[in-house]
């Protein structure tokens, strides 16, 4: 066992990923980015005060200092990577990456070009987002997606249960309702786009339904958790302890 150094600002140790949270209150069910039990490793949450989702959706520049401060505080606590619980934190990806020395994957949308690179030229890639009216071309450009890749975007904003239980910060979340609506939106997207090759779920509250979306569509589905797990892997390499005679 080695010699360990005190991290001057750390209250506790052993965290893997630090997650910036919107200033939002609602039930985060198992599978949600804001549920600690979703992960196979310890995560550390930090609420960015004042970061309501309408401000994050539009990329309000006045939030930048608070977001940077929160990210730097997470880094000082010893986390190995930083993510968030809203895909629209893409608006702040660059300023956060500049402010800290660890990998930053603030938005699930960063996966879109990576997933697109797995698909043949003729296939389109789908994004299901909390609010498609807020997902601008400017934001898509920020992901680095090639212009010649066909992108299909659908939003959940007009789904009544998603709107009432999630967008309106309802007191109650009925997972059957949200699952049904998410699957419907995905199936509609697939019907309208027979060339659909994969789906990326933008919203941090949708990973609990990824399995249902995949079972309904048969398509690869990537979400916030697949991305956070990927960066976990890169920051915590594992030993392969298979017995030698097993090779």
């Amino acid at each position: 066992m080695p010699v360990y150094k005190t991290r001057p600002q750390a209250e506790a140790y052993g965290y893997c990923t630090g997650i910036l949270l919107l200033d939002y209150q609602g039930p985060f069910v198992p599978g949600d980015v804001g549920n600690a039990d979703t992960y196979d490793y310890p995560v550390l949450f930090k609420v960015v005060e004042g970061a309501t989702y309408p401000r994050v959706f539009t990329g309000d520049p006045e939030l930048e200092p608070a977001i940077i401060k929160a990210a730097q505080e997470l880094e000082a606590q010893g986390v190995k990577a930083i993510s968030s619980d809203c895909g629209f934190f893409l608006n702040y990806q660059d300023v956060i990456a500049k402010a800290v020395n660890i990998p930053v994957c603030a938005s699930s949308l960063l996966q879109v070009p990576f997933v697109a690179s797995f698909l043949g030229k003729s296939k389109s890639i789908g994004v299901i987002t909390a609010d498609s009216t807020a997902l601008s071309n400017h934001m898509i450009a920020k992901t680095g997606l090639d212009n010649d890749r066909k992108l299909v975007i659908k939003g959940m904003q007009e789904q009544p249960c998603f709107d009432k239980q999630i967008m309106q910060e309802g007191d109650e979340l009925v997972t059957e309702d949200i699952e049904r609506e998410t699957v419907e939106v995905a199936l509609e997207m697939q019907r309208e786009n027979p060339d659909l090759g994969a789906i990326v779920l933008e919203c941090s509250m949708l990973p609990p339904y990824s399995k249902a979306v995949q079972e309904a569509t048969g398509l690869p589905v990537y979400d916030f958790i697949t991305m956070i797990d990927y960066f976990q892997r890169g920051t915590h390499q594992k030993a392969y302890d298979t017995p030698r005679h097993y090779y």
Binding site: P30, I102, A198, Q214, Y222, T226
Partner: peptide, 25 residues
Amino acid sequence: PVYDFISAIDYLSAGMRPRAYTGGY
């Protein structure tokens, strides 16, 4: 951070094997 071939294959596979979450809240 160190990435390798296995991290790419694990990620590729994750999209086709979404998890069922059974945790607490």
